[in-house]
Design a protein around this nucleic acid. Sequence first.
DNA 1: CAGCATCCTCGGCGATACTG
DNA 2: CAGTATCGCCGAGGATGCTG
Lengths: 149, 149
Amino acid sequence: MPLDPNRFPAMLRPGLVALAEDMAAHGTQRSDPTRAVMALMGDRWTALILQVLMIGTWRHADLRRALSQLSAEQAISQRVLTLKLRTLERDGFVVRHATADVPPRVSYGLTPLGLDLAGQVRALIDWVNARGPAIAAARAAFDTRHDEP
Amino acid sequence: MPLDPNRFPAMLRPGLVALAEDMAAHGTQRSDPTRAVMALMGDRWTALILQVLMIGTWRHADLRRALSQLSAEQAISQRVLTLKLRTLERDGFVVRHATADVPPRVSYGLTPLGLDLAGQVRALIDWVNARGPAIAAARAAFDTRHDEP
DNA sequence: CAGCATCCTCGGCGATACTG
DNA sequence: CAGTATCGCCGAGGATGCTG
């Protein structure tokens, strides 16, 4: 399934080829980190987790309560919180620090790389928030345009 | 379920309160566009669709083939392509232009707002690609650290 | 307190068939 | 060619109970 530029309108070929080459230059192969990291933005909790971790270092239970209170909708299950933190830890965005105590004391914080990522996410959130009114207006226009013929 | 700062470590309270206020200032309420737009980043196709639409204006079938060839994995179904484009159109990121011909001729392009969004996504993709090696290294370290005790 | 295992629900997305 | 309708799969994520 390689790219065959001839099957596309001539106007669009150069841009398409350039995009394909750029994607090939980085890893579009298996276990692609790009897709995985992009997915972090969109899933239900990770973006919020990163914002909260920018504040400082959190114990698991405190982090869980903070997230649950910040989310208007519903609380995060601790199973999912553990999963999300594991993923972030694996990719080098979060550090986990545990003591051998009993009961255990586990805390989570951002690595420099994670802080960088959180900043990117923050920028994106700010961008969307700034465009919120424009988006809402577009939605309203679309909906009234399609509700009644 | 309002925020009760007293239930959190004193060190973290100010930052948490600030974050909560910032979120409240924008819409954290129902039908929140922020979550919806953030979700665009992470879903399987939208980020790629935006990149391709940056090239120019596409007919439905051409766009479908381009996306399918760019995706290493699998082709996008045209049902899903229609759904994604509808969503983007509704939020004001994409314009749909149709003629009354038969067979129909429908083409899609970015609005100025959509071009702006595509640029943001592009920046994020570039950021991740630049960090690809660091992330891959972190993963490898994590995996070997957890595979064998 | 933090983590894991189990079960279950729900929504995203693919496949197919049909219409204008 | 573009869109809609219907079906089915699969994985994300919530709930609960048990362990160190």
